[in-house]
Design a binder for these strands. Structure first.
Length: 673
DNA sequence: ATTAATCCAGTTTTT
DNA sequence: CTGGATTAAT
């Protein structure tokens, strides 16, 4: 079935002999069917499912393909190794190492703490990069470099920070060391470590399939090359490359033939998705980009075409409302309608007005859920239970104690770690009393800095208030107050009573019931019912409390799918943004819309400056990439396409001109100035 | 120095 | 609505 449904172009590509094959597949040409067909071909040729590696841009995409393969081949399809580069890397590495995956946001804090301790030579001409910028730059460097050193890479980008190179590299080195010390890994480490492992392993796969190849960056490419596959099947489209900010490099796809000998290139030119009008419009705009290869798309669709429509509104709010009203009157399945925008900031307004008209909608990435304090706290507590070296989690959790901030949180963690001979958990539960927990601080005393106020206190000074951790050496910290000591005691009781070898769902239950979590949630509730004037609206407390409880239940639900605590926690980092919840109209950024299609598409907020995003272009982005983004957005539409903009944002008091791309599409007569 | 409270600006895109 | 900066208090 998967093979017989293909057209001739798709079939020849899907049944190409093993080797190095590149399929150029424009939007809507049946890329997914071709990959599914290819897998079918491989399986029918006698290749075992576990000898196939399918790399996709999202885990959802690979699951979709696998389920299509499963329709024909049944459960053995599930044995195909598949997922994002990161997911596949993690799957391998987790068997070998104790990994704590951390969000970039979290590691940024760690990075900053290192960077901000550096002293730069006095130099007036170019100030050094901020810690924040340097962190992002370093990540981009790891993704985008082709084996150059940081210095080479940086100067190739036209930066004159040569004077600071040694300091920057020192920061990176310390950052790497710290991550290793605490068992941390970030997204980049997954790929780097996996590539390292694979260089020493024989390739476990007969063929690697790589979807969205145009968005592969050099680091991901290194993963493929480290695997040294005998056979490679890559699918992509230059015009849909929209991840330059993440290091994606079109050179990788365009030099495929030079890099792999005997490479074959296949082109899919029949578009099944969109109507002629939609394709014409998309092509008119993308033609403004320098062509790497000629684009000639053949329209297959014969249904009565509806021309794309430009909607112009006086005001932003009016636009969102207009879109919502059109959706209401369209009488079309909501799941097959998408509102697509360049910037996430468009989503809030849309969501609000859809809600007003009682139109259900779903947004990708439950960001708000994982950002909620109660959820972050629960995950941090679980992290403490999972990885006794997880300093960031300790600090985050301890910071809820009164009088304890990030600095003291760190000192307590380090103290506990010392008391447990490197294991903070042991240090907390069974401290080695022969060790002085704050010895490290004393070393600084020779600088004359802390010796006056950092004198250890009597560990028994809180004894009246405490039961279980009376006399614990950590209580010697001079800045600890009674509240803090009681807080630590609750923490102690939580850690000592929580079993960690049970199912993650039950761990969450244990934590949620603990006086420690209870105590912090109580604080949180009180904070949330506090009005601006300091008044407490106690009537709302139950409601606030219930919201929190619901989130905990949701978290328990999510945890059900994981076999142990580590898998659960790491999965939350690896795939937190991939869960879309709810049903209804799809609210998507262009980036998130990649690979999807909808009957009716609204591309909104097409104002010059916002899209193309001129601020970004000023910072090194390119108009070509923005144009490709526009192309991707347009080609999501199957039947009906609306393009819209507003002349004015009343809230921000900004007047707008229509986007350059509307002009290039021939929808307006004058180019924006 | 560190914490905690308060005020202010500002918001790209993803694993 | 939140991260960042500023400021007062310990």
């Amino acid at each position: 079935m998967p093979l017989s449904g293909l057209n001739l172009e798709q079939y020849s590509a899907a049944t190409a002999p093993m080797g190095y094959n590149l399929v150029i597949a424009s939007a809507g040409t049946g890329k997914t069917s071709t990959i599914v067909g290819r897998i079918a071909y491989l399986l029918e040729s006698g290749i075992q499912p576990q000898e196939i590696l399918l790399l996709t841009f999202t885990n959802k995409a690979s699951q979709e393909m696998i389920s299509r393969v499963a329709k024909r081949f049944g459960d053995i399809a599930k044995r195909i190794e598949c997922g994002t580069f990161h997911a596949v890397s993690y799957r391998f590495l987790k068997e070998k190492y104790h990994i704590s995956l951390k969000q970039p946001k979290e590691l940024k804090v760690l990075f900053k703490s290192i960077a901000q301790n550096r002293v730069y030579p006095h130099q007036t001409s170019t100030p050094p990069y901020s810690a924040q910028y340097l962190f992002d730059l370093y990540s981009l460097f790891l993704n985008a470099r082709n084996n150059e050193s940081f210095e080479e890479w940086l100067s190739a980008r036209g930066s004159d920070h040569g004077a600071y190179i040694d300091i920057y590299e020192g920061i990176f080195e310390e950052y790497q060391m710290l991550k290793k010390q605490h068992n941390y890994m970030d997204y980049n480490d997954l790929l780097i470590e996996y590539a390292k492992e694979m260089r020493e392993h024989p390739c476990p796969y007969q063929e690697i399939l790589c979807d969205e190849y145009q968005d592969t960056n050099p680091l991901q490419n290194q993963v493929i090359q480290a695997l040294e596959p005998k056979s490679l099947f890559c699918v992509g489209d230059y015009d849909q490359s929209i991840y330059a900010f993440n290091g994606a490099d079109i050179a990788i796809i365009s030099s495929f033939k030079e890099i792999y000998h005997n490479a074959k290139v296949w082109t899919l030119s029949k578009n099944y998705r969109s109507t002629r009008h939609i394709l014409d419009l998309a092509n008119r705009v993308i033609e403004k980009n320098a062509r790497i290869y000629p684009k000639s798309l053949e329209v297959i669709k014969t249904s009565e075409p509806i021309p794309p429509k430009l909607l112009v509104y006086e005001e932003l709010f009016e636009q969102y409302q207009g879109v919502a009203k059109r959706i209401l009157s369209a009488n079309h399945p909501l799941d097959d309608i998408a509102i697509i925008f360049r910037n996430n900031s468009s989503a809030d307004g849309c969501e609000a007005l859809l809600r007003e008209l009682n139109i259900p909608s779903k947004r990708k990435g439950g960001v708000s859920f994982f950002d909620a304090k109660e959820v972050a706290l629960m995950l941090d507590i679980c992290s403490v239970l999972y990885n006794h070296k997880d300093m960031m989690a300790y600090i985050n959790v301890l910071s809820y104690g009164s009088g304890i901030g990030s600095a003291m949180g760190k000192e307590i963690y380090e103290g506990l770690s010392a008391l447990g001979n490197g294991n903070a958990r042991v240090g907390l539960l069974r401290p080695d009393t022969s060790i002085r927990p704050f010895a490290k601080r004393a070393k600084n005393a020779q600088l004359g800095l802390f010796d006056d106020f950092f004198t250890l206190q009597d560990v028994e000074r809180f004894d009246i208030a405490l039961r279980t951790i009376k006399g614990h050496p950590i209580l010697a910290h001079p800045k600890l107050n009674v509240e803090g000591a009681k807080f630590l005691e609750m923490f102690f009781e939580l850690v000592s009573s929580c079993k960690t070898n049970i199912h993650p769902t039950n761990i969450i239950t244990q934590v949620a019931r603990s006086p420690f979590y209870e105590h912090i949630i109580e604080q949180l509730c009180l904070q949330r019912i506090k009005g601006k004037d300091g008044s407490m609206d106690f009537a709302r407390k139950d409601e606030v409390r219930e919201k929190i409880d619901r989130k905990v239940v949701l978290l328990q639900d999510i945890a059900k799918g994981y076999e142990n605590l580590g898998r659960f926690l790491n999965a939350m980092v690896l795939g937190s943004s991939e869960n879309t919840q709810g049903s209804g109209v799809n609210l998507l950024t262009i980036h998130a819309s990649k690979g999807l299609e909808f009957g009716i598409v609204f591309v909104i907020d097409l104002m010059h400056g916002r899209f193309p995003n001129l601020k970004l272009i000023a910072k090194g982005g390119s108009i070509e990439e923005e144009r490709r983004l526009f192309y991707v957005a347009i080609t999501r539409a199957k039947e009906v396409l609306y393009l819209s903009y507003a002349k004015r944002d009343a809230v921000k008091n900004i007047d707008y001109q229509p986007s350059l791309f509307l002009y290039e599409a021939g929808l307006i007569q004058e180019a924006p100035s």
